[in-house]
Design a protein around this nucleic acid. Structure first.
Length: 586
RNA sequence: CGGGGUGUGGCGCAGUCUGGUAGCGCGUCCGCUUUGGGAGCGGAAGGCCGCAGGUUCAAAUCCUGUCACCCCGACCA
């Protein structure tokens, strides 16, 4: 590549619409250009980087025995209707119509197509297991694309799917993918964690996410400092305490608690009007009742009440993950009007549950086990129930993991206090089970000649996101600092000065390195000043920068490490071998 | 969808309060000089001031509406 002709324009200033470093630098250094929100063009340098990442992913997928294929991005509606995702995916799908008014979509993910392809070609247990993958452009009409290429509406994803006869086979395929992912993310140079995750809209059971650790990441996860437990906050399972005996517990009594619609005011009122001998009332003694409106994919609305310890908020992400594919909406005044048994600010378990007078489904936090006593709403304005014992005075319809998770909460494995951190989701692996195979009738004959439903796994890597994520983790004040195996070139040669000898030698060195298999970005611009060239080289971020300039008269050139800034003089005579050694190609 | 902000040459911005017919820096083009840390001088091209109405002798500026984009929250690789 020659800078004099390369389709590139670097920007001296940060683009105004870019906030996060990866976005700012990828635009400034001329890797990408925005076309529309969440939709980007890959310029020559950017495309090289994208292809490098793709290649690493491809090698590892091939290495674990998966086979690459390619589906269209433009898809008919029918397969997605069969699995229910045409509606479940909601507004996130880009939908379009053909001239005959037929419905199409731009694929957000391809479970259906892979399932149908296997159904089309295979029909015996002898054909299994098989893992297939593609590296392809996906489309999701994100409510809010952001951070450049980190979260786009069009993005490149590697998605793969495993097909097995039984659970044991699925476990094996899942583990193979997991191992391949570890190799992929190691090669991409991420600091990452593998966390337990929710299966989400994909359906299925076991699921883990690969999160690149990043302070500005969108996902919050917790991890245990003393064992290997780590989980996305959505997926944290609270360790339920043992039920306790309530034989000696005082009977429930409803007391007047004026002006106490919030937990804080309630605790004040309790300590003021009904002080306890042994200790003061605290938020942890109260059971907070929160009601929301669930909107199911078919449009039906169902109220849901939840009881959580009073010192905790309901975490909307956790709640959303629990009730998926239903959507959570606020419970409006008009909803309260429709359910007169729900007294705003004073709701309590005794009026809740499918069997109760309100008929509203009531789920409680796992900490609300049988025998625990609470102060909760009295279902009458200005009243609360005290010594309300779970299992004696009320029974919930079930449990829900919706209360917020906080640093310091006990690890479900070992009880140590959990720590919280943030990350960017780079990969996600799922054991899907038979959801798609059943919906699309993917069965094979087993050794007894009987039809068996195939069990599936689904595995994704955000390829274009990885580019952003690597940029996010590999830059400094001057610009990008690519890892060698991702960089758009092995060496960036800067020719300074107007001396013809410099230009000639730089050209000669470039050819020699290229002949040895290295990729070179040569700054052969005649008009640009040395300062401009140095700045551009630093911005672009090729890991090794070679300066051919004033030292040439003395028979030396300069080899500089972009990341450390270390530089050394190298004799022209052994320049090629030295540089090849530097870039790890000798 | 809720909150905040911004729309002015390719990029970054000023001008808007207090209407008077568009400016600065960078970039681009031409010429000369310059070449180890974003060069100098001279010349040039390039803008329906997001869009639509309105007020006015006159609108980038005031009024109304509308659209777009960015950031923060609810969704996802």
């Amino acid at each position: 590549m020659r800078m004099s002709t390369l389709f590139l324009r670097t920007l001296r200033e940060d683009p105004a619409d870019a906030e996060v470093p990866s976005h700012r630098l990828l635009v400034r250094a001329g890797y990408i250009r925005r076309v529309s929100p969440g939709i980007y063009t890959w310029l020559p340098l950017g495309l090289k980087v994208l292809r490098q990442v793709e290649q690493i992913v491809r090698e590892e997928m091939d290495g674990m025995g998966a086979q690459e294929l390619l589906f269209p991005a433009l898809l008919p509606k029918e397969p997605y209707e069969a699995t229910g995702r045409w509606t479940e995916y909601g507004d996130n799908i880009f939908r379009l119509k053909d001239r005959k008014d037929g419905d199409y979509l731009l694929g957000p993910t391809h479970e259906e197509l892979f399932t149908l392809a296997v159904k089309d070609l295979f029909n015996s247990y002898k054909d299994l297991p098989v893992s297939l993958y593609q590296i392809q452009t996906k489309y999701r009409d994100e409510a809010r694309p952001r951070a450049g290429i980190l979260r786009g509406r069009e993005f490149v994803m590697k998605d793969s799917y495993s097909f097995d006869l039984d659970e044991a086979g699925l476990d094996k395929s899942y583990q193979l993918h997991r191992d391949a992912y570890v190799r992929i993310f190691d090669r991409l140079g991420f600091h990452y964690v593998i966390v337990q995750a929710m299966a989400g809209a994909m359906g299925g059971s076991k699921s883990e996410e690969f999160l690149a650790t990043a302070e500005n990441g969108e996902d919050t996860y917790v991890h245990c400092p003393s064992c290997d437990y780590a989980a996305n906050v959505e997926a944290v399972k609270v360790a339920a305490p043992q039920p306790i005996s309530y034989a000696d517990a005082p009977a429930v009594h409803v007391e007047e608690t004026p002006d106490s619609p919030t937990i804080a005011t309630l605790v004040d009122r309790l300590n003021e009007l009904y002080p306890r001998a042994d200790r003061a009332w605290a938020a942890t003694d109260t059971l907070k009742t929160v009601v929301v409106m669930l909107v199911h994919p078919d449009g039906t609305r169902e109220p849901l009440a939840m009881g959580v310890p009073g010192d905790r908020e309901v975490d909307e992400k956790r709640l959303g993950a629990q009730v998926e594919p239903a959507r959570v909406e606020a419970f409006e005044e008009s909803d309260f009007a429709a359910y007169p048994a729900l007294v705003k600010g004073y709701m309590g378990p005794q009026a809740l549950g499918l069997e109760s007078e309100s008929g509203v489904r009531f789920l409680v936090d796992p900490r609300v086990v049988e025998g625990t006593a609470w102060v909760a709403g009295g279902n009458r304005h200005g009243y609360h129930a005290i010594d309300l014992v779970a299992g004696r005075d009320f029974t919930a319809d079930g449990f829900i993991e919706a209360a917020e998770v906080r640093p310091g909460d006990p690890c479900p494995n070992c009880g140590t206090g959990l720590e919280a951190a943030r990350g960017i989701e780079m990969g996600h692996i799922f054991q899907l089970g038979t959801k798609y195979a059943e919906a699309l009738d993917l069965k094979v004959l087993d050794e007894n000649g009987k039809l068996r439903t195939v069990t599936m796994g689904s595995y994704g890597v955000g390829v274009s996101r990885a580019v952003a994520c690597i940029a996010e983790g590999n830059h400094d004040d001057l610009g990008l600092c690519w890892p060698r195996n991702i960089s758009p070139a092995d060496v960036h040669i800067v020719a300074t000065g107007k001396d013809d000898a410099v230009a000639l030698y730089a050209e000669e060195l470039t050819r020699a390195l290229e002949a040895a298999g290295a990729t070179v970005l040569l700054d052969d611009r005649k008009q640009a000043s040395p300062g401009v060239k140095f700045k551009d080289a630093e911005l672009i971020g090729v890991p090794t920068i070679v300066v051919v300039g004033r030292g040439l008269a003395d028979g030396t050139i300069e080899v500089k490490d972009r990341r450390s800034g270390d530089r050394r003089e190298v004799a022209v005579d052994n320049a090629v071998s030295e540089i090849l050694r530097e870039i790890g190609r000798s």
